[in-house]
């Protein structure tokens, strides 16, 4: 289990692909290297694509948990820290 403290949260359940990733990317850009972002996202396409795209950009996926309402929480550490 990785220890982390969430620095910022972004809700991308109000947009659809591919804007989901764009919104997450912008939120990550605003963080300092090494800071942790919690991304609240929907089931389906978002949860299939957003973690992969974030990984491709070099960031570290810390945790992905499913919520009871069908949404997910993705915790990411910004690359470079």
């Amino acid at each position: 289990m990785v220890d982390f403290q969430v620095d910022e949260t972004v809700d991308i359940t109000d947009v659809v692909c591919p804007i989901t990733f764009v919104k997450a990317k912008v939120a990550l850009e605003e963080l300092d290297d090494g800071q942790v972002l919690l991304i609240h996202l929907n089931d389906g396409e978002p949860v299939q694509n957003v973690p992969r795209s974030i990984k491709e950009e070099g960031h570290q996926i810390l945790k992905l948990t499913g919520n009871e309402d069908g949404t997910y929480d993705l915790v990411v550490r910004k690359a470079g820290g």
Binding site: D14, I19, V22, K25, E29, E30
Partner: peptide, 18 residues
């Protein structure tokens, strides 16, 4: 959200970004 959508093809580029 509307701006993210309008400019998504720019923002997604490493060389542009937010």
């Amino acid at each position: 959200n509307e701006q993210l959508e309008r400019y998504s093809r720019h923002i997604i580029l490493q060389e542009v970004g937010a």
